[in-house]
Simulated assay, not measured.
Amino acid sequence: MAERQFLGQGSNTSWEKFWYVLGCIYFGAAYFQKVPVKKALSEYGLVEMTGAEKFWYVVQCILFGAGYFAKVPVKRALSEVRDPNGVFGGQPPAGYQAPGYQAPGYPTA
Rank of each mutant, 00 (worst) to 15 (best):
M1E: 03
M1K: 14
M1G: 05
A2C: 03
A2W: 06
A2T: 07
A2K: 15
E3Y: 02
Q5K: 10
Q5S: 07
G8R: 04
G8Q: 08
G8K: 04
G8M: 09
Q9A: 15
S11G: 13
N12K: 14
N12Y: 13
N12I: 12
T13N: 00
K17R: 11
F18Y: 10
W19S: 15
Y20F: 15
L22Q: 00
L22I: 13
C24A: 02
I25H: 03
Y26M: 01
A29F: 11
A29P: 04
Y31V: 10
F32Y: 13
V35N: 04
V35W: 07
K38F: 08
Y44L: 00
G45K: 08
G45V: 14
L46H: 14
M49V: 09
M49H: 00
T50M: 02
G51W: 04
A52S: 07
A52M: 03
E53S: 07
K54V: 09
K54G: 06
W56Y: 10
W56T: 01
Y57S: 02
Y57H: 03
V59M: 09
Q60M: 00
Q60P: 02
Q60N: 04
Q60I: 06
L63S: 01
L63I: 11
Y68Q: 05
Y68D: 06
F69K: 10
A70S: 11
V72P: 06
V72S: 03
R76M: 11
R76F: 12
E80H: 13
R82F: 11
P84L: 09
P84M: 01
F88R: 14
G89L: 05
Q91S: 10
Q91I: 07
P93L: 12
G95Q: 09
Y96P: 09
A98D: 05
P99Y: 08
P99R: 08
P99C: 01
P104Q: 01
A109Q: 14
A109W: 09
